[in-house]
Design a binder for these strands. Structure first.
Lengths: 205, 205
DNA sequence: TAAGTTATATATCAATCGATATATAATTAT
DNA sequence: ATAATTATATATCGATTGATATATAACTTA
């Protein structure tokens, strides 16, 4: 059998596109607010197809959260990691957060984790673990980049990497909350340069 | 008729206590995740009693949001406004936020607005307006206190009140998100003094 | 004591929910 | 051409949902 030949009826939808459509439904309506009807309609498939490909509603939900963590939630961190100049990197991170939480292609706003997924802590198994992992991974990656800059001599040796990483993340939470409430990217970007300076500033003691 | 005499069968539950119980259910399970059964059980009343006193599920929800905005969500702002020393006021605000989002008496965590209510933006009428109002009112009150301190000469005349108010609020969003994810008050408080200094710092240009 | 008013208890409603059963379809292998 | 395998369409399920109908209860007023 060649790589592409597979016995049985071929699936007639794209798994990744369907998952993305499901994520947008969950992001707009929340886990409990999204019905199977909403999901299957957006995904363009029937119920049994959805169950076969993704499992039950909760398993599908967890898969959308994982996808979000790997793509949307990740993009600002990647922007931060990939820009060589640390000041521009910080700015890139904040701008990327603002961009996706105010003008997401799926018509959603804010952050999927902060605005929807956090509702389910303690109620939907698997959610709290993913939230904790997302926070820790983001904190770690942001701090790691600062540590790298310290090693290169671009930041003072007593620069509090983890503290500033957490500060960046918390600023992110403010942006995505305002984004969910309808604030525009322009308004949110107004004080970015000042915030960048605060994040980058050498410690005062 | 005296002040306390009222014809008809007397209500046998306390409106405010019932509303508080309902808020805790919504805060734990979200609007869609909370059933009438959950609500009436926690409130200790029957369905018709709930409808008579509070209206339908959505109206009850909006009342719990308003109550939250007036009490829990308000407490840190009141702490900030009532402390004469501006530095201690900022610290008091951040500590109060951390306290209620990590150890709420109802067993909930995080912020009701950020963790639950934001899920319903665009889905439950009345929600977005309340979120926008809550953000604006908090920004305004925080900024007003800074303006007052400028007038007293305790802060530089070029102190960016609104910008720092927004910064405080956004730091708040980080704290409540981490609180929802299970972080402890102790961990969250670790870098408060540095953050206070950032908030209070004179502008660098 | 009876009427009027308001509250509560219980039963019930139509609709929707998440998930599965069953039948049919589309492919590859033999 | 048939069997095996996998996917999809449609119908159906038991349970739950938000909300209301009906009966009863608890009060004040006349």
């Amino acid at each position: 059998m060649s790589d592409t030949k597979k016995i049985g009826r071929p699936r007639n939808f794209d798994i990744d596109e369907a998952l993305l459509a499901a994520m947008n439904v969950f992001w707009s309506k929340g886990y409990d607010g999204a019905s199977l009807k909403d999901l299957t309609k957006a995904m363009g498939i029937s119920g049994p197809s959805m169950y076969a490909a993704f499992g039950d509603k909760r398993e599908l939900y967890l898969k959308t959260i994982d996808q979000y963590a790997d793509v949307d939630g990740c993009a600002p961190v990647v922007a931060f990691e990939s820009e060589p100049d640390i000041e521009k990197a910080v700015q890139g991170f904040l701008e990327a957060v603002i961009e996706y939480s105010t003008d997401h292609s799926g018509g959603t706003s804010g952050c999927f984790l902060a605005s929807c997924v956090s509702t389910n802590v303690g109620e939907v198994e698997g959610v709290e673990e993913r939230m904790v992992n997302a926070i820790n991974e983001t904190d770690n990656r942001l701090a790691a980049r600062f540590e790298l800059e310290k090693e290169k001599g671009n930041l003072p040796h007593n620069f509090p990497s983890r503290e500033r990483a957490r500060l960046m993340f918390d600023m992110r939470q403010g942006y995505v909350f305002r984004g969910r409430a309808g604030w525009t990217a322009e308004t949110l970007k107004a004080d970015i340069s000042h915030r960048v300076k605060m994040i980058i500033a050498a410690p005062t003691e």
